[in-house]
Design a protein around this nucleic acid. Structure first.
Length: 465
RNA sequence: GGCCCCGUCGUCUAGCGGCCUAGGACGCCAGGUUCUCAUCCUGGAGAUCACGGGUUCAAAUCCCGUCGGGGUCACCA
C-alpha cells in the first residue's frame, strides 16, 4: 500500500506554491497506485504559528483538488493529524530513545550554546553542540527534578557514514561528523520537526517520503532516529526546489508564492497543476498539456530530474490560456461570473461575450479589461474624434435604418458605408471601435455591437457628437 | 567556510555511447490570415551540451578535476 503525505506547517498565510508542487506529486503517486494521500499539520513551533494559516492551507489544497484521504478535516485511523495533539506520543517515544542511549538530556543555556558554537567557528570547526551534558546525565536528572528546563538531544555517533537511497538522486552519503546533536524534544515539551516526522511517518505507515530537496541534508538525522527505534526506512525522494529567476529558492520577496494568489489572478487550478507537473519532469511522449488523470497514468518518481527549475509565470500564462480556450462556454461563463461575483455581471451579456473572449483570455482577471465595455459605457476614449462628428451622425442614421440587428448585417452595412464615404476600413472601424468601447483593442466589433444592441450603440455614438 | 545536490537555447525540457551538423515547448523576431487585438499558419534567431583532461573506433551521454549555481549547517519547519 502506497501512502504519501505532505506536512505543511501553519506558519505562513497560505500554502507555498512549492508545497503545492510536492503535494501534487504526493497526491498523484498515491492516486496512481490506489494508495492514500495524507495531510498532516506540523504545528510544533508555537512561536511562528499564524492564526488561520491551517484553515487557509487546507482550503487552498481543496481548491486545487488535492483532497486528502486522511487529514484533520476528514479524519482517518492514524490520527490525530495535528502534531500538537500528539504530544503524549512523542513523549513516550523520546523516553525510549533516552532509555536505549540514542538520546540524552541537556540543560545547557542558550547563551552557553551560542558561545560554544562561536568558539568552534573561530577555530574553523563545524559549529555544533559539544556533548557537554552527555557525561553528566545523573546530575541533570536532579536538576530537572528541581524544575530546570531541559531538552532531549540525539546522540549522534562521532564518525559514521550514513547512506541512503534517494529515488531521484541515487545513493547519498553523509558522515555523522557533519551532524549536530539535534534537539529532539524542546524545553516547552514539543518535539522538533526531526523527531516528529520520523515518529509520525512511521506510525502513519508512510511508504514514500516525497519532499523538497532542502531536506536532504537532514535526512541522515532522521535515518539515525529510525535506526535508534529499529524501524524500517520509508523510501525517500527529494524533489527539486522551485527557483526564482535568479536561481535562488523561490521566495516571496522575488515572486508570488502563495498558491491562492494564482487563483486570485484567475489562473485555473488544472493549469497551475499541469504547469507544476512539468517542473523537473517531462511527459514520456513529450506532451505538455495533460490533466491530472493522465499525469497519474504516466508519472514516475524516477523520471524526475534533480535540477532546480525556474518558475516561469509567462509559460504558466500561456498554458492557462490553452486551458481557457478548451473550456465549454457554460464552464467559462461560470468561472468568470464566479471570479467577478461581487460585480454582479449581467449573465446575459456575459454569456454572449464568452465566444468573443475565450481565445483572448490568458487569465480570468483579464476579462473586464477585454469585455468590460459590453457592460458599461466608456468613461474615457483612447482616441479623439472631435473632427468626425458629421460622419458619426451619418453612421448613427445608417444604423438606425438597420432592421435586422445581426453581426453580419451590421458588418455589411458599415463596410458599404465606409466604401461610399471613401474611408479605408481600418481607419473607419478603428474610429467606430473607440466610439463604442473607448478602447483601441476590443473583441470583433460587429459581434460586440450585436451584443450591445441597436439602441445602446446609437446612444453611445450620439454621446460623442 | 564544511557537507550535500546540481550544470543541454533567456526559461521549461528531450536525450541514457553511434539515429545529434542536439529535438520540442514558452518567450522573442519576421511574414501570412484579419477592420484592432487574440487565435491560427509559415519561417527565423537562439545551446562550441559550463570548462579542462581522460576512457572509447565513437561522448551531451562514462570517469576525474576545475569553475559556476543551489541547498543546508537553530530548542524553524
Amino acid at each position: 500500500m502506497i501512502r504519501t503525505r505532505i506536512a505543511p506547517s501553519p506558519t505562513g498565510t497560505d500554502i507555498h506554491i512549492g508545497n503545492l508542487y510536492t503535494a501534487y506529486l504526493n497526491w498523484t503517486l498515491a492516486k496512481k497506485h490506489g494508495g492514500k494521500f495524507i495531510v498532516r499539520i506540523e504545528d510544533t513551533d508555537r512561536t511562528r504559528r499564524i492564526e488561520g494559516s491551517e484553515e487557509k492551507i487546507l482550503s487552498t489544497l481543496n481548491a486545487f483538488g488535492l483532497t486528502p484521504d486522511e487529514s484533520v478535516e476528514v479524519g482517518g485511523k492514524f490520527g490525530p493529524y495535528r502534531q500538537s495533539e500528539r504530544l503524549d506520543i512523542y513523549k513516550k517515544y523520546s523516553k525510549i530513545l533516552l532509555d536505549n542511549g540514542s538520546a540524552y538530556l541537556c540543560t545547557c543555556s542558550r547563551t552557553r550554546l551560542e558561545t560554544v558554537r562561536e568558539d568552534m567557528k573561530v577555530n574553523k570547526q563545524i559549529p555544533k553542540y559539544d556533548k557537554y551534558c552527555l557525561s553528566r546525565q545523573e546530575a541533570i536528572k536532579k536538576e530537572i527534578e528541581n524544575g530546570k528546563e531541559h531538552v532531549v538531544r540525539l546522540n549522534v555517533p562521532e564518525d559514521e557514514d550514513v547512506i541512503f537511497q534517494d529515488i531521484i538522486r541515487g545513493e547519498v552519503k553523509i558522515n555523522t561528523g557533519n551532524l549536530d546533536d539535534q534537539v529532539l524534544m524542546k524545553s516547552d515539551g514539543y518535539p522538533t520537526y526531526h523527531l516528529a516526522v520520523v515518529i509520525d511517518d512511521y506510525l502513519m505507515k508512510i511508504s514514500h517520503v516525497i519532499r523538497a530537496e532542502e531536506w536532504i541534508s537532514s535526512t541522515p538525522k532522521h535515518i539515525l532516529i529510525y535506526k535508534a527505534f529499529g524501524w524500517e526506512l520509508p523510501k525517500f525522494a527529494h524533489v527539486p526546489i522551485l527557483r526564482n529567476p535568479d536561481k535562488s529558492k523561490l521566495s516571496k520577496r522575488k515572486n508570488p508564492v502563495w498558491a491562492s494568489w494564482y487563483l486570485e489572478q484567475g489562473f485555473l487550478p488544472s493549469a497551475v497543476l499541469n504547469y507544476l507537473a512539468l517542473m523537473g519532469w517531462s511527459h514520456p511522449e513529450g506532451k505538455e498539456i495533460f490533466d491530472a488523470d493522465e499525469f497519474a497514468e504516466v508519472f514516475t518518481l524516477e523520471r524526475i530530474q534533480p535540477v532546480g527549475p525556474v518558475f516561469d509565470v509567462k509559460k504558466l500564462e500561456w498554458m492557462n490560456g490553452q486551458y481557457i480556450m478548451k473550456l465549454e462556454i457554460s464552464n467559462l461563463k461560470f468561472l468568470i461570473s464566479n471570479f467577478y461575483k461581487d460585480k454582479n455581471l449581467d449573465p446575459n451579456i456575459l454569456e454572449k461575450s464568452i465566444p468573443l473572449v475565450r481565445e483572448r483570455l490568458k487569465k480570468l482577471n483579464e476579462y473586464l479589461d477585454i469585455a468590460g465595455f459590453l457592460f458599461e459605457k466608456p468613461s474615457s476614449y483612447e482616441k479623439d474624434f472631435s473632427g468626425e462628428k458629421e460622419l458619426l451622425k451619418k453612421v448613427a442614421d445608417k444604423l438606425e435604418s438597420l432592421e435586422s440587428w445581426k453581426a453580419d448585417e451590421i458588418g455589411n452595412l458599415m463596410q458599404d458605408f465606409a466604401t461610399s464615404e471613401n474611408i479605408p476600413f481600418g481607419k473607419f472601424f478603428m474610429m467606430l471601435r473607440v466610439v463604442l468601447s473607448g478602447k483601441k483593442i476590443t473583441p470583433p466589433l460587429n459581434d460586440s455591437m450585436e451584443i450591445l444592441g441597436k439602441e445602446e450603440c446609437i446612444a453611445r455614438i450620439k454621446n460623442v457628437i
